[in-house]
Amino acid sequence: MVIELSFIWAGIIAFAVLTYVILDGFDLGVGILFPLARNETEKATMMNSIAPIWDGNETWLVLGGGGLFAVFPLAYAVVMPALYIPIILMLLALIFRGVAFEYRWRTERWKPVWDAGFFGGSLIAAFMQGIALGALVQGIEVTDRAYSGGWWDWLSLFSVLTGFAVVIGYALLGATWINLKTEHRLQAQMQRYAVFLGIGTLGFMGVVSLLTPFQNPDYFQRWFNLPGSAFSVIVPGCVLLMAWLLFSSLKAGKDATPFFASLGLFVLCFIGIGISFYPNIVPPSLTIVEAAAPDSSLKFALVGTVVLVPLILAYTAYAYWVFRGKVDPEEGYH
């Protein structure tokens, strides 16, 4: 029973993190692309396209942190000190971009400051998330239930590479989201950029995927032996399918398909990372079972999660539905 519960929870946490990545991914991406807006109307349109939903998206990050603390306290206690600097920088960056949503409408003189904060905050938050991912893939040194590495261990060529990969990937999500929510020049511009960002994302996926098996011999084993090797064939196939969907729908000027194809790419990357990690929660040595809280904690938290998460998904979907369709740029100018 212990094993089953902790694995169910690993699945739930993975789901929360994935949901965070794809939801906040596109709104961080909008922030990264923000300087491309040519005038105030376009800026307002870009920001208004995510204003009603960004804090709901970011709540999944809180769930990722809070959930890890709840059900894998050891993983939380090991990962946070190990990734101290990237996490603190990510939090500070998120503060800057979060307040920009309200602050930029409250001042004329300082508007450029908050706009810069929105862009810089989104960019740094995305980059730090990518670095954290790379550092996690490379592995975290654990002795006696505590992090035992240095406080610059997270910084490596590989983690910087994953940092750039996430920035480009989020920008792709952002570009396809803006394509979905806007019209005219902005939409046309984003369609063009999405092609380049799509090529960039696929390039980074390729390089990171090639390098990952060499970060840890276990990954090599998993990807080149059954059952993992089956995925080694399936996943790239799916990636090609999504890439074709992305580029062909961009060319055809579709609204929604490019966005969902980009989301698909992220889901596939995430599955790939999951295959590399399993059965560890923190590579190279901390397993899901070791890190799990006692059964009573897992059960108590599970009851509420099973009831509440579907409810959350339902009213989140409703909020997206209420604010559906193209953003009206005039709407901000009563």
Binding site: F69, A70, V71, A77, I88, A293, P294, S297, A301
Partner: peptide, 23 residues
């Protein structure tokens, strides 16, 4: 987690689920 990880490891099983419920 960043500054009080030993606290987190020790109290996580009790306090973590309450915070998860808050979220």
């Amino acid at each position: 987690g960043t500054n009080w990880s030993v606290f987190s490891d020790k109290t996580g099983p009790v306090l973590g689920p309450l915070m998860a419920y808050e979220v």
